Computed example of a mutant assay.
Amino acid sequence: MPVLMDIKSFVSVAEAGGFSRAARQSGVSTSVISRRVDRLEGELGVCLLLRNTRHITLTAAGDEFYRRGKQILAELEDAYQAVAEPVEAIGGPLRITAPYSFGIRYLEPVLDQLALHYPQLELDISYSDHYADLQNEPYDVAVRIGRINELSFAARKISSLRTVVVASQDYLRQYGRPDSLAELSSRDCLIYSGRTLAEWVFEKQGVTTRVLPGGRYRSDSGEVLLRWLLAGRGIANLPAYMVSEALAAGQVEILFTDYRLPEYDLYILRPPGVRVAGKVRVFIDRLTAYCQQCAISNL
C-alpha cells in the first residue's frame, strides 16, 4: 500500500492545481511533492495526473483516487481526534443542512440524542430539497444525496440509497397495472422537478431503458410526491426509504420488480481542514451509526 504522505501529497496537488502551489501549502519542496506523486503512481501502476508546463489535469483514475483518498484522509483525521476532545468541550452552535425527507426520518432521532447528551450544543437545522451554497453559507455539516459538487470539502460516504417505482393500491384498482415501461409515458406519473433529467432509467440484464414519464403532477418536494402517491393520484419514482412504511402497511406496491433502478450515494460533507470540531465529529459518527442500525441501504 502507498504510504500516507504520498496520498496526502497527491490530494494536495489535485486541490491546489499544481505541484508548486501544493509544495508551498505543505511546507516542503516541489521536488519532494513530485517524488511522492511519482511513487504513488508507480505503486498503483496507473497515471493519476496529466502534466504540462502550465497546469495539471486529473485522469479518470486520478479523479476516482482523489475522491476515495480524500475520504480516507478525512476519516483518519476523525479517528485521531475521536479521543482527543473531552465531552465537556462539545458545545456551541451546530449548523446542518439536509434534504427534507431524509432529515425528518433519519436526522431527528440523531439530533434528539445529541441534544440529550450535550446540553451545551445549540442545533440550527435547515431541511431543504435544494442544495445549500456551502461556499458562501456558514454550515458546519451538509448531508447530500447524489453527486458531490464541492470537491474541496471533506466527504464521507454513509450508504447507497435505492429507488423504486411505486403506485398505491387505490390507483391500481382504479387504473390497473401498467403492462410495459413505455406505458408510463401515457400514465399519470408523479414527477420530481428538482432533477435536471426528467427521464426514469431502468436496467435489465445489462440493457438500459429510458422513459419520459407522463403526468400533470410535478413538485420539487419529495414529501409532496409521497402525499400524492398515497392519495392515489399516480405512479411515483421515489427513494425506497421514503415509502418503506407505506410498503409495510400494504398501502403501495412496487412495480417493474424485474428491473433495477439507479442508486444514489448518501454523503456527509464538512468544510476542509485538518481540525474537525468535536460537535461535527459526534454528529457524523452518530448519524453514520444510526443509518447502519436502520440498514438504510437495504430498504
Score class of each variant (00 low, 15 high):
Arg227Leu: 03
Glu108Tyr: 08
Val243Met: 06
Ser193Val: 07
Leu123Met: 14
Tyr264Leu: 15
Ile284Ala: 12
Tyr192Thr: 01
Leu40Asn: 01
Ile125Asn: 11
Lys70Ala: 11
Pro2Phe: 02
Val211Met: 05
Leu123Phe: 11
Glu183Ile: 05
Gly42Lys: 12
Glu223Pro: 01
Tyr290Arg: 03
Glu183Met: 04
Ile72Asp: 07
Ser12Ala: 14
Ile33Val: 14
Thr59Gly: 09
Gly69Trp: 01
Val274Trp: 12
Ser152Trp: 14
Arg51Ser: 03
Thr209Ala: 05
Ala154Met: 10
Ser9Lys: 01
Tyr267Val: 10
Val11His: 01
Leu76Ser: 12
Asn52Cys: 15
Arg35Trp: 02
Ser12Ile: 09
Gly62Trp: 01
Ile191Phe: 02
Gln120Pro: 07
Glu137Ile: 08
Ala289Arg: 15
Leu255Trp: 08
Phe202Asp: 00
Arg24Phe: 09
Leu94Gly: 01
Ser168Trp: 06
Ile104Thr: 11
His55Gln: 13
Ile158Met: 03
Ile125Ser: 08
Arg24Pro: 07
Asp133Met: 02
Ala246Leu: 09
Leu49Cys: 14
Leu49Ser: 06
Tyr192His: 02
Gly222His: 12
Asp170Ala: 13
Gly42Asp: 15
Arg39Gly: 14
His117Phe: 13
Glu15Arg: 08
Ile284Gly: 04
Ile268Tyr: 00
Asn298Ala: 10
Leu134Thr: 02
Glu150Ser: 15
Pro271Trp: 01
Tyr264Asn: 10
Gly278Thr: 01
Val87Met: 12
Arg177Phe: 11
Arg35His: 08
Ser168Lys: 03
Asp265Lys: 02
Glu183Val: 07
Pro93His: 06
Ala115Leu: 09
Ala155Asn: 03
Ser26Val: 13
Ala74Val: 06
Val252Ser: 02
Asp188Pro: 02
Gly232Glu: 13
Ala98Lys: 06
Ser29Pro: 12
Arg156Ala: 03
Val32Lys: 15
Asn136Lys: 09
Ser128Asn: 14
Leu123His: 08
Gly146Ala: 14
Asn136Leu: 09
Leu190Met: 03
Asp188Ser: 13
Ala23Asp: 04
Gly62Gln: 05
Val224Ser: 12
Val224Ala: 10
Leu111Val: 06
